[in-house]
């Protein structure tokens, strides 16, 4: 995939990830407060936003829970690494099985009360799953462009 396309992907992921910290960003520009309810609503579509599971400091909270923040952080890190170096990705489904199972196990275990919910564990399970998910997304996007180029030729 060409550098501009990788850059576009990174910019989109970066904007989405930065949006999670919108409450802190408002301090830099007061007028952004008008977008606050819409931004909050946008992230509520992709996360339950349970107040006990949000990452918070300085009286502000992220728009998504620790696990979702982890997923998007994993995606951000991978899209950045991919921007720096164009990796050739070969998929191995075992990774997605393992990391998705760990994520699901953590959700089940904390839901039924086997152990207490931990933001750090949730964040980490999210990071691993997000990283693997990005590799699948990037692989799929590459194939999509290959198909389009193939059709043109």
């Amino acid at each position: 995939m060409t550098y501009p396309l990788r850059l576009i992907i990174f910019i989109f992921v970066f904007i989405w990830f930065t949006g999670i910290f919108f409450e802190w960003i408002i301090s830099f520009n007061n007028n952004l407060i008008f977008i606050f309810p819409f931004a909050e609503r946008t992230y509520s579509l992709v996360c339950h936003q349970d107040s006990t599971k949000l990452i918070g400091f300085n009286n502000h909270h992220t728009f998504v829970c620790a696990r979702c923040t982890g997923i998007y952080f994993g995606v951000l890190i991978c899209s950045f690494l991919n921007l720096v170096k164009n990796f050739k990705i070969s998929l191995n489904n075992n990774f997605i099985y393992i990391f998705f199972s760990i994520l699901l196990l953590d959700v089940f275990a904390t839901t039924i009360g086997i152990y207490e919910y931990s933001k750090i564990i949730s964040f980490l399970t999210g990071v691993f799953f997000g990283s693997v998910a990005f590799s699948y997304f990037y692989y799929g996007l590459n194939k999509l462009f290959e198909e389009k180029i193939g059709l043109k030729n």
Binding site: F38, T42, Y136, F137
Partner: peptide, 25 residues
């Protein structure tokens, strides 16, 4: 507007991930 934008993006991302996963499987 929110639903249209977010669901479409997540739908496309999810489909590309799923297709890659299913093809590999």
């Amino acid at each position: 507007l929110n639903n249209l934008i977010v669901n479409t993006i997540f739908g496309v991302v999810g489909s590309l991930i799923s297709a890659s996963f299913i093809n590999n499987k």
